[in-house]
Design a protein around this nucleic acid. Structure first.
Lengths: 203, 203
DNA sequence: GTAGTATGCTTAACGGCGTTAAGTGAATTC
DNA sequence: GAATTCACTTAACGCCGTTAAGCATACTAC
């Protein structure tokens, strides 16, 4: 009687198909520019079918963000695991953060550039926060190691982490939202901000 | 025969009324959450009337952004006119930028945190660029003075200006959009980012 | 003074959107 | 073989930005 299981697998398969279609469209064309009808068309089902698998459009995005942020966390974890010079490690982590944002601008936009007023439901909002916190804690760990090794003048770990995050976010956000601005050199700019700030903090 | 003139004045007056209503709504509820019908309702005209004064919704936003940029430019101009120590001046300008954003968070959101400029018509795209350029040039001037006084290691003025802008934008944007985050110390964070970056650039 | 025109605004509509209510036909259960 | 469940669809609601067409009023020209 593996019948129920087969059906379960089939349902899961369609769920994944929807998610794949949504991710492809969101990432390539931007969340706002993709309609539920377009996603439905892509998977060759009626639009309402999507609502049998997901609560609404934003839940699609949420699931995709989750995947993507897990990937960011993994990337940051690898870097922190390497156990190199803490400051080098920290810089690498910040660079990875910016690169991640530029690689998935639509995910980044939704998670870090949205207005706090457009609140979804309570539970999902908290999950979203936890998702961000997870990534923040990797950064915090990198900073902690620098502070513990007495490499920094300033010793307030949260103040340091938040400042570095803010700076990295600034480069990421501005490159994403003002992608038509005649930037002198994006790569050099990223390095200038991150490296100067980290170096400037040395004891 | 001041008749034509009176009509001109009346037209201009309604145009301003539309702009005021749009600004108020955009700033309080966000561009995406405000419909043309809502703006029309506020001014007690039919929605189509707006289209007799503005090409489309994004042109409303464009005009509002222009105002905000102008206000920021004025503030920055005052600071650069003071002619103090170039580095002190630059820091003050950057601080003023962040303060401006925090003082008018909704204007800042509308102007700097909105859509990645999927430019509509050519002319407006160029104007939009020029608008940003005007504010940017004040910052650039401040940087230029530092470079000309041989105070900085890096001498690429645009690279420097853009990096500083990115960092200042980062602090501003993150404090605005993540206002519920448990920040260690907002003021110290602003100073840490700006001052460390500028100091870190010294020759 | 009246016919004709321009002006300023409105009503009605188009084609889209996210989402929901109601149904349908096949598979499963009893 | 009837009843029920399941996976999905069709039709619709009430929004949206935007456009076409119409309609009074004010102005112009004869």
């Amino acid at each position: 009687m593996g019948l129920k299981e087969r059906r379960e697998r089939q349902k899961e398969s369609l769920r994944q198909e929807i998610l794949d279609a949504a991710r492809d469209l969101f990432v390539n064309e931007g969340y706002e520019n993709v309609s539920m009808r377009r996603i439905a068309e892509k998977i060759e089902y009626s639009p309402t079918t999507i609502y049998l698998y997901f609560q609404d459009k934003s839940e699609l995005l949420f699931n995709i963000c989750e995947e993507t942020f897990a990937r960011l966390s993994n990337r940051l974890e690898e870097i922190t695991k390497e156990g190199d010079d803490p400051i080098y490690c920290l810089k690498r982590g910040l660079h990875a953060y910016v690169e991640f944002g530029l690689q998935y601008p639509n995910h980044y936009k939704v998670t870090f550039l949205n207005h706090p007023t457009q609140s979804v439901d309570k539970e999902r909002y908290l999950q979203e926060g936890a998702m961000g916190m997870n990534a923040y804690n990797h950064l915090r760990l990198g900073v902690e190691r620098c502070v513990e090794a007495n490499l920094f003048r300033e010793t307030n770990i949260d103040l340091l982490s938040q400042s570095l995050w803010a700076a990295a976010h600034g480069v990421t956000a501005i490159l994403i939202t003002k992608c038509n601005f005649p930037w002198a050199d994006k790569e050099k700019m990223i390095s200038l901000v991150i490296d100067n700030l980290v170096e400037g903090l040395r004891a």
